[in-house]
């Protein structure tokens, strides 16, 4: 019934060796492992984690098929939920790290200490002297993403702890 639309093509049922599917899962997992272990780009590391989760999904579906048991497919949903939550948090971390370090390389984020990008010019208020905060600026603050477009809504420097 479920297979009605493909039935003529798959009339004989699943006739391939299911071990192959588990093998595919293994191969995908090691590819994901390769990505996480070798790549330094945080985005690609996140993608590799997705590959590993998918490898687990393949194996779950395969065993669900083998044992004629739906739980495997249900577990795939839970795995997808975990993946969705992981991506949301992971990407939020990527954005936070990128804001601080201007880089997507994990090695740049290896050091816990704040990088001093120099003070961010404070919010310009109406009527304030235009040249008032020129002495704050130094060559470094051009690096700070927070200082260019978004300065008006953050009166404090982004890397506030760095000044302390």
């Amino acid at each position: 019934m479920a297979a009605s639309f493909l039935h003529p093509l798959l009339a004989a049922g699943v006739d391939m060796p299911l071990e192959w599917v588990v093998g595919l899962g293994l191969a995908l997992f090691s590819v994901g492992l390769l990505g996480v272990a070798c790549r330094r780009n945080i985005l690609i590391m996140l993608l590799s984690v997705e590959i590993m989760l998918n490898a687990a999904n393949v194996v779950l579906v395969a065993f669900s098929r083998v044992h004629s048991e739906l739980s495997g497919q249900v577990f795939v949903f839970f795995s997808m939920t975990v993946a969705a939550a992981e991506v949301a948090i992971g990407l939020a971390i990527v954005i936070a790290v990128y804001r601080l370090r201007q880089s997507t390389d994990v090695d740049d984020a290896a050091d816990l200490g704040e990088v001093d990008y120099g003070p961010v010019p404070p919010l310009k208020l109406e009527g304030e002297d235009q040249h008032h905060h020129d002495d704050h600026g130094d060559a470094d603050h051009s690096n700070d993403a927070g200082s260019d477009g978004a300065a008006p809504d953050s009166a404090e420097p982004i890397g506030a702890a760095g000044e302390a």
Binding site: V14, M16, V21, N54, N57, V58, V61, S64, V76
Partner: peptide
């Protein structure tokens, strides 16, 4: 992988994938 799921007759999982 969605194709693999279809081959394994897990259509719903394939669509959700």
């Amino acid at each position: 992988l969605a194709g693999v799921y279809v081959v394994l007759e897990a259509y719903f999982v394939a669509a959700v994938q």
